[in-house]
């Protein structure tokens, strides 16, 4: 049976993607699911730190360059059911990886004997990162309730849209149309990605249908991290609304994680990040997010008002 792939990304900024990835992974593993975490973070693959592991010898770079099989690169962790692949600085966020190689990697990833594969894309937003994002079954963005974080998210989304549309056109031998249109955007009065997509849709009814279908398939799952008040919680709903109404993408608000100043103290002192005590509020919040992911549900207003 093929594994389900969840990608965690969303663009620049230390929003806590690695933390969220490892937390979700651990939660699933503790439920008895087989989980493989993949660290594809350019900013310094550091997922292993969260797992209290030494940096592994083999990485995805070896997969690409030495054709080392994934099974040799996957490492067990101290947590049962939880395994781990490190990306290395060079592996997924360089433009050097050929498309065919990426496809090969995705095929292999799909066939890892895991129930869930979680890919931490970190801060990356180039083609490789975005393609990895697009290949996932669930695309998860972690944001902070700060303007820069939203700014980065929108930038990321625009790149994703652009990439998606370009790839689609490429499949029909029209690869350069979107790119050229964007380059000539002043002349064509295309002001932003939305208008570019409209332009592409108007090329022909067939293209329009394809683009609409492609975008209808796309759902972005939102997690707001380091929430300190109710307004921060609202950021998730607001972001979801903008994505739906302005970017015209399907979006779901998975949940939020409260800022917990005791959390890091807890981790450092007890060195027991791996042992999540269910009474820790963060663990509960993660659990709720995971449940929403598995049941394809999301946060709604009444849950927030009544207190989860």
């Amino acid at each position: 049976m093929k594994s389900e792939i969840w990608a965690i990304g969303g663009g620049k900024g230390g929003t806590g993607k690695s933390f969220v990835t490892s937390s979700i992974g651990m939660n699933l593993a503790q439920q008895g699911k087989r989980v493989t975490l993949i660290d594809a973070d350019l900013g310094g693959a550091n997922l292993h730190t969260f797992l209290r592991m030494k940096k592994p010898k083999h990485s995805l770079t070896d997969f690409f360059e030495s054709k080392t099989p994934l099974s040799d690169i996957i490492k067990n962790t101290d947590v049962p059911n939880l395994r781990f692949i490190t990306g290395d600085v060079r592996s997924l966020d360089t433009t050097g990886v050929k498309y065919a190689q990426k496809l090969k990697l995705y095929r292999h990833i799909r066939n890892i004997s895991s129930d869930y594969v979680l890919i931490d894309l970190g801060a990356g937003s180039n083609h490789d990162t975005i393609d990895s994002f697009l290949v996932a079954d669930r695309m998860i963005a972690v944001i902070l309730p700060e303007e820069t974080s939203l700014d980065n998210l929108y930038l990321f989304i625009k790149k994703v849209l652009f990439r998606k549309v370009n790839r689609l056109l490429g499949d029909y031998g029209l690869r350069d149309i979107a790119r050229k249109a964007w380059e000539e955007r002043n002349r064509k009065e295309i002001r932003n990605i939305k208008e570019l997509i409209l332009y592409v849709k108007n090329i022909s009814p067939e293209i329009r249908t394809l683009v609409e279908k492609s975008l209808a398939d796309f759902t972005l799952y939102i997690i707001v991290n380091q929430v300190k008040n109710e307004q921060h919680i609202e950021t998730g709903f607001a972001t979801k609304s903008i994505l739906q109404q302005y970017f015209e993408l399907d979006a779901k608000y998975l949940g939020y994680i409260r800022y917990n100043e005791f959390f890091w103290k807890f981790v450092k002192d007890t060195n027991s990040f791996k042992q999540f005590s269910p009474s820790v509020s963060t663990a509960l919040e993660i659990g709720s997010i995971v449940q929403n992911l598995m049941e394809n549900k999301q946060l709604n207003l009444s849950q927030v008002h009544n207190g989860i």
Partner: peptide, 25 residues
């Protein structure tokens, strides 16, 4: 009504979610 009003208020105010889109929205 409350749900609608919340969103209506959001779209008629400034916020960290809307400000980054100032030049295009």
């Amino acid at each position: 009504y409350r749900a609608y009003h919340k969103l209506e208020t959001f779209y008629t105010s400034d916020s960290i979610v809307l400000d980054p889109l100032d030049d295009e929205l």
